[in-house]
Amino acid sequence: MVSDLNSVPDRKTSWLRPPVTVNAYYSPTRNDVIFPIAMFHLPFYIPDGPSAVNFGAMGSIIGHEITHAFDLQGRQYDGQGKLSDWWNEQTVQNFLLTTTCMKDQYSNIKIRGVKIDGNFTLDENIADNSGLRAAMYAYQMWIEEFGEELQLPGVNMSMYQVFYTSFAQMYCSKWTDYGLFYHLLTDPHSPGSARVNGALSNSQTFSWTFQCPLDSKMNPRVKCEVW
């Protein structure tokens, strides 16, 4: 509003982006997560739609943003948004070990002959993987409370398969060579196909759901897990 132009901004309660923004985010200095209302529609959410669809998409996004509080950057801030080394030594050592696994995993992914920078994209990769895992746990808890969902008519998939398909379709994308290379150089998010395949290949539940053979591309023997 015009009346707000000359006032001191309220940095603790004001939104960093307008509600029409289709992008959730986490702020370490404010220790808050924001999910603009514009996100609550396809392909992220269906009001009164199948829970498998909503947990797989919006649920994983919620888990993704919360995980940012515990990635390389977020973990440096405490509950008040202040820089603080609040982890114990054992937690730090475990974190360094598991994040090394994930960094090496994504560094070996090639798209059009170019490798992803696993170090540059590490925070987002941690959030993708942990957000997906948290969403599946939440969906399983929902099933325990409300029971199994009926299979969708005309869709030859189990509801667990629908869950993972809903997660994957959020990152459908198409790139020109220039656009892809620019993205790899400037964006901390891995390209869509790598975000999907990286996180799914680390999910034991995904491998079971789609019956992926052990040591196949989508069911490697070594699976990286940070949170």
Rank of each mutant, 00 (worst) to 15 (best):
L214C: 07
G179W: 08
W86D: 14
W86M: 12
G56I: 05
E144I: 07
T100L: 08
A134D: 03
V114Q: 13
E144Y: 01
R221P: 01
Y25E: 14
I62W: 10
A38N: 04
I66N: 01
H183C: 07
T29S: 15
G192E: 04
T176W: 03
I116A: 09
S3F: 13
S107T: 08
G63C: 03
S173L: 05
S14G: 09
V162D: 03
K174A: 09
M39W: 06
R17E: 12
M157A: 11
R112S: 15
P47C: 13
F146Y: 09
G198S: 04
C172D: 06
Q105F: 15
S158T: 14
R221D: 09
K217I: 13
N94E: 02
T176N: 03
C212W: 00
Q140F: 11
G56D: 05
S166M: 06
V22W: 07
Q204E: 07
G59W: 07
N125C: 09
D10Y: 02
N54Y: 07
Q169R: 13
S190W: 05
F35K: 01
D104R: 14
D32H: 04
I46Y: 10
I111P: 01
G131R: 05
G74R: 10
D187G: 00
S107L: 11
V114I: 11
S7N: 12
A138F: 04
F181G: 05
C172S: 09
T29G: 14
N94M: 10
P9Q: 07
L5H: 03
N156C: 02
R75S: 14
A38Y: 01
M170N: 04
I61W: 02
I66W: 06
H189C: 05
W227C: 00
K115M: 12
Y25C: 08
N108V: 04
E225S: 13
S27Q: 08
F210N: 00
R195L: 06
W142Y: 12
H64C: 04
I116L: 14
M170Q: 09
Q76K: 15
T121Q: 11
M141K: 08
T13A: 14
E145M: 13
M159P: 00
N108L: 12
L200S: 01
A134S: 12
N119T: 13
H68N: 03
V2Q: 09
V222G: 03
N129W: 05
I111G: 03
Y178A: 12
F40T: 00
Y160A: 12
Q140G: 10
S51K: 14
T165D: 11
R30S: 11
W15L: 15
V8L: 14
N219V: 06
N156F: 10
V22D: 07
F146I: 05
P153M: 05
N219D: 04
V20Q: 11
T205I: 13
L180P: 00
M136S: 02
P36G: 10
F163L: 04
L97C: 02
K174C: 06
A127W: 02
I62S: 01
E149A: 04
Q80G: 10
I109G: 02
